[in-house]
Write a protein that binds this DNA or RNA. Structure first.
Lengths: 247, 247
DNA sequence: GTGTGTGAAAAACTTCACAGCT
DNA sequence: AGCTGTGAAGTTTTTCACACAC
């Protein structure tokens, strides 16, 4: 089965907003809050994602408004923490009422940049890569895989999930640039992870989510988040042997 | 292809130590350190896992000793942080030299309980579950999948990776108890995640690594770690739009 | 000299508690 | 009356800097 990369990609691209928009949206909302430095704590961002998930669930249940405790408790957080987190970005609540679920969801998505869809590329079409490509959560949060890259000649030219083309890694540069792709998910073997990351950085990618179990570093403006699944299991097994700390 | 669950499992079990041993090993090493409460910060445990990975890499390169800076820098941490983290558990270093890689690796593994292998069960044999089962990192860190569970009758009775049986979820209780399994990895659809977790808790599991994108809660002594892959991507996209914070 | 282990200082983050809006 | 937004207090975690050991 043959395909023309450019045309495959153009379709996916159409649904995506020019990335530059996001920057403005976020910066408008930032109202450098109470007694803080102006930088948003990393932990806050992690929790915003959790709020999104919880709000989506509430909305599915037709809940109109939720107060800080209602949002916090199912996530194992405190009401004060929720209010503080949201206050970093503005006054989203209604005193005496709480937060309108729909509105709050929109606001948080605007902050995270997920009120528009992001095109994402996958590098490494092995087991894990293929599973991630089918992972519902990514699509639910606004991320669309538009292409995959691999260096196995037997895979190149085929498609994943019947529509995502697997291309030669060399062609990633062009696609990153022409399709305005800013995010890449990397699932390649450990020993080539760093060179793949270097290549992506040189291609003008904005951020990399790395699943290879090795700490790779990225050239300056490129953001990198390393996910090591074994680390999570180790956290857990430590907690089990200790029987302390809730995590 | 038929199989007898009990015999399939016994083999995997043989390679595993009775879990009770771990508790002692860890508690002996804990020397409730400098000026602290005696509880180990969660973040420290996360970093111990990273040290393991880095040490494994150094050992593969035949590096004998490493100092705190050498361990910290590739992981994006500071030397002081490494020393402080390790000091929670004892004096592992040699002044003027650093740390012996092999010895430190053993020590950390003893702390994490991964100096012996752990039998793990997989619940939910969909795409993600199957990919996790093949994920190298788990085996590298001492975790062995011994069985998978699903409720799809077409899957039950088959094997994953040609040796891991897929069984009916009901049979999990018996296997947890007879094989001394303390850890489960859950990759089921969101809507059944909580009931699966409840079932596992009732079966006597020790800890659950949950990949379903919903916050599930576990009955008291059971530890739970939620991993939401979309959260990681959101962290990244926020960093990309902001171009701040290294994470 | 080199590099750990660790108190002390600083920074980051969380919780408290309450004024003030609806 | 109910619940947010936020200073202030409290706690945790990180960084600093140096005495001490090899």
């Amino acid at each position: 089965m043959r395909f023309g990369p450019a045309s495959d990609l153009r379709v996916a691209r159409e649904t995506c907003v020019p990335p530059e928009k996001f920057v403005d949206m976020v910066q408008i909302d930032l109202h450098s809050p109470p007694g803080t430095t102006g930088l948003i704590p990393n932990a806050v961002i992690g929790r915003l994602s959790l709020y999104v998930r919880e709000l989506q669930q509430l909305i599915r249940q037709n809940v109109e408004t939720v107060n800080s405790d209602g949002l916090a408790r199912p996530l194992g957080l405190t009401a004060a923490q929720v209010r503080k987190d949201l206050a970093y970005f503005g006054n989203f609540g209604l005193r005496g009422i709480g937060y309108r679920c729909g509105e709050l969801l929109d606001r948080i998505r605007a902050i995270l940049g997920t009120n528009q869809r992001w095109p994402v590329i996958l590098v490494g079409a092995g087991n894990l890569g293929r599973a991630l490509l089918g992972y519902r959560g990514f699509a639910d949060h606004g991320y669309d895989f538009i292409a995959a890259f691999d260096n196995d000649p037997r895979k190149i030219g085929t498609h994943l999930a019947e529509q995502i083309p697997i291309l030669n890694l060399e062609s990633a540069r062009k696609i990153v640039q022409t399709a305005g792709v800013r995010l890449a998910v990397v699932c390649v073997p450990t020993d080539v992870a760093q060179e793949v990351v270097d290549f992506l950085c040189a291609s003008g990618i904005g951020g990399i989510l790395n699943f290879a179990p090795v700490n790779v570093s990225a050239a300056k403006p490129v953001q990198i988040v390393n996910v090591d699944l074994a680390v999570e299991l180790e956290q857990l097994s430590f907690a089990v042997v200790q029987r302390v700390r809730s995590s």
